[in-house]
């Protein structure tokens, strides 16, 4: 018989991880996809959580723009000022932080606490 334990929360749930990190006294930023246009890899509401040492859990784009979000998250942890980031189609000027799928996303980054 297949055993499928009923879990209310998946493994590595970003918001659960954020709370654990907070409990350990780590600085934490939370990034959230607030809007998407066209084909976007992660739905609205998806989270990436980042600590002050660039450890992260979750995703906002399935890997395309996480690097840029993490670097902005470190600023947000430093200043406490939330940021709204926007990522669009990968083109030459935005090569490093583009979405290859051709969509566009807005990501809100805020400090926890």
């Amino acid at each position: 018989m297949e055993t499928m334990p009923q879990k209310t929360m998946p493994d590595n749930d970003p918001l659960t991880v954020a709370e654990e990190w907070m409990g350990e006294g780590r600085d934490v930023a939370i990034a959230t996809v607030v809007e998407t246009w066209g084909s976007a890899p992660r739905p609205v509401g998806s989270h990436l959580v980042i600590d002050g040492d660039s450890n992260f859990e979750g995703s906002v784009s399935g890997g395309c723009v996480e690097g840029a979000v993490i670097s902005d998250a470190l600023d947000v942890i430093e200043t406490g000022e939330p940021k709204m980031l926007e990522f669009g189609v990968a083109d030459e000027t935005a090569w490093q932080v583009g979405l290859s799928c051709g969509g566009k996303i807005r990501v809100y980054v805020e400090r926890l606490g």
Partner: peptide, 29 residues
């Protein structure tokens, strides 16, 4: 995000309650 909000949100989710986090994108509250 307010740490108290995160705790309340996670507790509701773990308890299988429908819950929403409403964030004012202007001031972050």
């Amino acid at each position: 995000m307010d740490p108290a909000s995160l705790k309340k949100l996670n507790a509701a989710r773990a308890g299988r309650r429908a819950v929403a986090l409403v964030t004012d994108l202007g001031d972050g509250r």
